[in-house]
Computed example of a mutant assay.
Amino acid sequence: MDSAVNNIVSASLAMQQAQVAQQAQLTVFKDALDGQAAQVAALMETISLEPQLATSGSVGTLINTSA
């Protein structure tokens, strides 16, 4: 009976250690996601909603309307 109790205690400690490790991994994962969300938000702020048209050069500045 003593070995059964030792086995149960050992299994319980192993599960607690696994839970702590999973919590640490989840915290790191959430921090990484928060960092990526901040980077995407900063990138989205730099994008303008108005399309930027060409103002110089031969591509996109001339339209042939007589065709």
Rank of each mutant, 00 (worst) to 15 (best):
A24H: 14
V40M: 12
A42Q: 13
A21C: 09
Q22S: 14
Q39G: 03
G35W: 06
M1Q: 06
S12Y: 06
T46P: 01
N6V: 13
Q23Y: 08
I63L: 06
L13I: 15
T55H: 05
A67Q: 12
V40W: 02
N64M: 05
D2K: 15
A4K: 11
D34A: 03
I47L: 11
A37R: 09
D34N: 09
T65N: 14
A42E: 09
D34V: 10
T27W: 14
V59Q: 10
P51D: 03
T65C: 03
N6S: 15
A37F: 06
Q22D: 06
A38G: 06
I8D: 12
I47Q: 02
A11G: 11
M1N: 04
L26R: 03
A41Y: 09
D2N: 13
L43Y: 11
P51W: 00
S48Y: 04
N7F: 14
A42D: 11
V9L: 15
Q25G: 02
M44R: 15
T27G: 09
Q16H: 13
L49V: 01
S66W: 09
Q25N: 09
T55K: 06
L26N: 13
S3F: 10
S56W: 14
A54V: 00
G35Q: 11
S12T: 13
S10H: 15
M44N: 12
Q22F: 07
Q52N: 11
Q19L: 10
L62P: 02
L26Y: 04
L62T: 15
Q52V: 05
L13C: 11
D31Q: 11
M15L: 14
V59C: 08
I63A: 08
A18T: 08
L62S: 05
D31G: 02
V40H: 08
L49P: 00
M15S: 02
P51I: 00
S58Q: 01
Q22T: 04
Q25L: 05
T65P: 02
I47N: 01
A32V: 01
Q19H: 12
M44S: 10
V20P: 00
D31P: 00
